Amino acid sequence: NCFEFGNGSCPGTFRSSGIRGAMYLFMTGAIFFTIFGNLAIIICVSYFKQLRSPTNFLILSMAVTDFLLGLTVMPYSMVRSVENCWYFGLTFCKVHYSFDLMLCVTSIFHLCSIALDRFYAICYPLHYSSKVTISVIKRMLAVCWSVPAAFALGVSFSEAYASGIEGYQILDACSRSCLVIVNKLWGTVLFTVGFFTPGCIMLGIYVKKFLVSKKHARLMSSMPENANHEKPNQLSKNKDRKAAKTLSIVMGVFLICWFPCFFTVLIDPFLNFSSPALLFDALTWCGYFNSTCNPLIYGFFYPWFRKALRYILGKIFQTRFYTASL
């Protein structure tokens, strides 16, 4: 019985045209920067031979993930968030949600893989080139893509996430809001797989890396002060400061963007689904912004990416510039 949902089958919206226009403008800007920021990294790493390292292949794959999120998921989420209605049908709602979940978790898995790669490079530098090979990176990428894909597609189309929720079938059939409500079990599983486990791995790795960097700095400081060691000591201190800054930015952005979203998914079933839909929309977009920030952190933060982009923009018509030294 869909009588209670009314003829429109969409919740009423009280937003003025000015507010809706501002929301469209803001979200379109986020989509634009997500798409073209990650596209710039894809072009740079794919084109320049000097950037084709194991670490940069991880960054390239993450950029592809975030690019697809901005291109295929965020525009439909924007329409749903602004109009407070889903115009694209029930089947596409499930497809959209499955791709949304898959690409978001895949992006988080890539963050975790990059942390593992950098941990091995800093803590075991002499063995890094022989242990972290292209074949190892391919296996890591296979895990980063296959596990979230199997998890998201299986959960979405089986509707196991809604098992035991009273009234969900009527809501799913009658409402045109594309609401996805998870039960207690799958809320806990999603929080553990998508945020808690990768977050703990990343945090532990970054703490270990920071401690190793401090140990290197102490060793450098204990060396006799003379002209030969003054420059290495200064370089080591600068590198440690840069490492500390990078770690704080990476973890800060990750936690700010994803913790509120996953925490709400975890606790909402235990609060009898009392969280408003507007809150879920806002927190979902907060998570999307992590894909917007990733190009700034992992791409343009490094000088050779900025130089590669300048080559592409300024010398694109010159021949053989893809072999330029960066």
Rank of each mutant, 00 (worst) to 15 (best):
I201D: 04
I201R: 00
I201P: 03
M202G: 06
M202H: 04
L203E: 05
L203G: 03
L203P: 03
G204H: 05
Y206K: 01
V207N: 11
V207H: 10
K208H: 05
K209H: 13
F210P: 01
F210Y: 13
F210N: 10
F210W: 09
L211M: 10
L211V: 05
L211D: 02
V212S: 09
V212G: 08
V212K: 12
V212Y: 13
S213L: 03
S213K: 10
K214V: 04
K215Y: 02
A217K: 13
A217F: 06
R218V: 11
R218I: 05
L219S: 04
L219F: 05
L219D: 05
L219T: 06
M220N: 04
M220C: 04
S221L: 11
S222K: 07
S222W: 06
S222G: 07
S222Y: 09
M223I: 09
P224E: 06
P224R: 13
E225S: 13
E225P: 08
E225H: 12
E225F: 14
E225C: 14
N228G: 05
E230S: 09
E230M: 10
E230F: 11
K231C: 06
K231T: 13
K231S: 15
P232A: 00
N233R: 14
Q234R: 10
Q234M: 10
Q234Y: 15
Q234A: 01
L235C: 14
S236V: 06
S236Q: 14
S236M: 12
N238H: 12
N238R: 06
N238F: 06
K239T: 14
K239W: 08
D240H: 09
D240M: 12
D240G: 13
R241E: 12
R241D: 15
R241V: 05
K242N: 10
K242M: 09
A243R: 10
A243S: 10
A243G: 13
A243M: 03
A243F: 09
A243N: 13
A244W: 02
A244H: 05
K245F: 09
K245G: 13
K245M: 11
T246C: 08
L247P: 01
L247F: 14
S248L: 15
S248C: 14
I249T: 11
I249E: 01
I249K: 07
V250G: 02
V250S: 03
M251S: 01
M251T: 00
G252M: 00
G252T: 08
V253S: 04
V253I: 04
V253T: 04
F254C: 02
F254V: 10
L255C: 03
I256F: 06
I256C: 01
C257F: 00
C257R: 03
C257S: 08
W258T: 15
W258I: 11
W258V: 12
W258Y: 08
W258S: 12
